[in-house]
Design a protein around this nucleic acid. Structure first.
Length: 261
DNA sequence: CTAGATGTTAAGGT
DNA sequence: CACCTTAACATCTA
């Protein structure tokens, strides 16, 4: 589920596994995932180079190459990274593979081909060009309220809009709304400073807990709605049945008893 | 077999 | 202009 907590987990995974070793080669199994570069170009970009750090902005991961360039990765709906040694354990749906000089490989794995890998020279420029808002974790309550006053519309769509703030998707926007008892269709305009403060606080808390759990639903706090986003499941707060609805083109899950406008 | 799934973008409607 | 919904992308699973 590559929203902010998932991508932050991938960033830490990459930092712990794949830094310091130089890249010997690249295999591109699905050229369609490459943007602004072809397989040959990607080879030229990374061969002989090392990844020496990794940054995240919203749902994007950026790895820094030791000659100053960057590789940006987005994970679509199903992407992840896997570091492995034995060729027999090469993951299914590996779309791109980085081969290191220590014999290990880093696979960019993505069943549905909705993510992209792109070269870039500057993270700041990339964020500006893609019109990404500030990373959600960087927002203090003042900024959060200021963003809310700039737009109208429904709160779930607002939270998921990457050009407002970057990082929340369908799952975690549901979670922060559940934690604050706010209905997804609630108008942003109708939220006062107090509600916005609560929403900001819950957002930080949810994201930090999820990162701590390495975005694994089975390790989330018991109070989370996240593992109960399916028909027949019960609200962890009131025990009532959870409900789904369409919001911003996605399926939102909520507890109709706990969440009101 | 069919419908829907964590994302993004474009296109069309109101 | 601002907002809303839908479709498309490819593949797996309920």
């Amino acid at each position: 589920m590559p929203e902010l907590p998932d991508v932050e987990s991938y960033r830490r995974y990459l930092e712990s596994k794949a830094l310091r070793h130089s890249v010997q080669g690249v295999e591109v199994e699905s050229p369609g995932v490459l943007e602004d570069i072809n397989p040959q170009g990607l080879g030229r970009l990374v061969k002989g180079r090392r990844f020496d750090s990794a940054q995240r902005h919203g749902k994007y991961l950026f790895t820094h190459l030791d000659d100053g360039k960057w590789l940006g990765m987005h994970f679509g709906m199903t992407g992840r990274l896997q570091y492995f040694k034995d060729e027999d354990t090469r993951p299914k749906h590996t779309r791109c593979l980085f081969k290191f000089d220590n014999g290990f490989d880093l696979a960019y794995v993505m069943p549905r081909k909705l993510g992209r890998i792109a070269p870039l020279n500057s993270v700041e420029d990339f964020v500006r060009e893609r019109k990404l808002g500030p990373d959600v974790l960087s927002l203090d309550v003042k900024c959060f309220r200021a963003l809310a006053r700039k737009r109208s519309g429904k709160v779930k769509a607002w939270l998921m809009n990457q050009s407002v703030m970057a990082g929340l998707g369908n799952v975690y926007s549901d979670e922060v709304l559940f934690q604050t008892g706010i209905h997804p269709d609630c108008q942003v305009k109708s939220l006062g400073d107090k509600r916005l403060g609560e929403l900001h606080r819950a957002t930080m808390k949810v994201l930090k807990s999820a990162i701590k759990a390495e975005a694994d639903p089975t390790r989330m706090p018991k109070s989370f709605l996240l593992p109960h986003r399916q028909a027949g499941e019960r609200c962890p707060r009131c025990g009532g049945e959870v409900q789904s609805m369409k919001a911003a083109g996605r399926t939102a899950w909520l507890c109709p008893r706990c969440q009101k406008c």
